[in-house]
Amino acid sequence: MYAIQEKSKKINRNKIKKRNVKERCIKIILFLLASISILTTIGIVIILSRETISFLREVSIIEFLTGTEWTALFANPKFGVLPLVMGTLMIAVYGSFIAIPIGLGSAIYLSEYASEKTRKIVKPLLEILSGIPSIVYGYFALTFITPLLQKVIPDINIFNALSASVAVGIMIIPMISSLSEDAMKAVPNEIRQGAYALGATKFEVSIKIVVPAALSSIISSFVLAISRAIGETMIVSLAAGSTPKLTLNPLESVQTMTSFIVQVASGDVTHGSLIYKTIFAVGMLLFLITLIMNIIARMIIKKYREEY
């Protein structure tokens, strides 16, 4: 009798032990899965820096960062990245000239003016706009915006920064409007009522109370949207052309960092050649710029939270 009890205790203990081992294994497996995202970042950093360092052995960092001529695909190549950076920033900035007022306007309308019924119809429609792939916007820029611009401005280049800017702007509108609207909706209703009770109009409540209260999130949505515009690839590849140029004239054809990478990758590139390495060097710059902007966006929100 006693022996049987001992035995069953032992079996039980074995069972518990087995169970605990299984639980621990599961935890380890899940941890390994979660660490893949860390490995991705490490992978990006290592791959980009390895090839960038090897690129910088052949091209001086000074020439790369301060040179004003980018002729990477020519026989006698020059690797001054500024024209690509300029093209990228120009399209992102001009695009945000369109997207910021329209995105913020829509956000204010949806958050402050629209009835619940209108909101329920309009919001999903705007969400569709954000779900459309960028290649479709690229097609739209090429086949609709550019011909339209050509009618208004006859001497505009077929491939031009303006058309791409407009399309990029349209693409980032939903991002700004939905992030800003969320921020404005988060402003407590009591605060609005306080202002209405003082005889403020809707306009005054929106502009003087709600927007200032949500300002940090709104501005961070601008930063995120611009960062998205900087990384946008397909629109600029289709509509902006492939002429690296140090210009601020939106009527000209330009090249961005992303469209350069696409241009090189679409051709025949031998692994390990200098031109292969330019993909990584330009990609590194792009990665750093967008990373910094995303960090800034997060810092803006964080600072606000500490204040109140």
Binding site: T40, T41, I44, I47, R228, G231, T258, T290
Partner: peptide
Amino acid sequence: KIIKLNISNLAGVPSIVFGILGLGI
């Protein structure tokens, strides 16, 4: 904390950079 921060950072990395990562790895 690092994993969480990293995930939100990755969400902001341009898709073309993932392409470059894929090409390299």
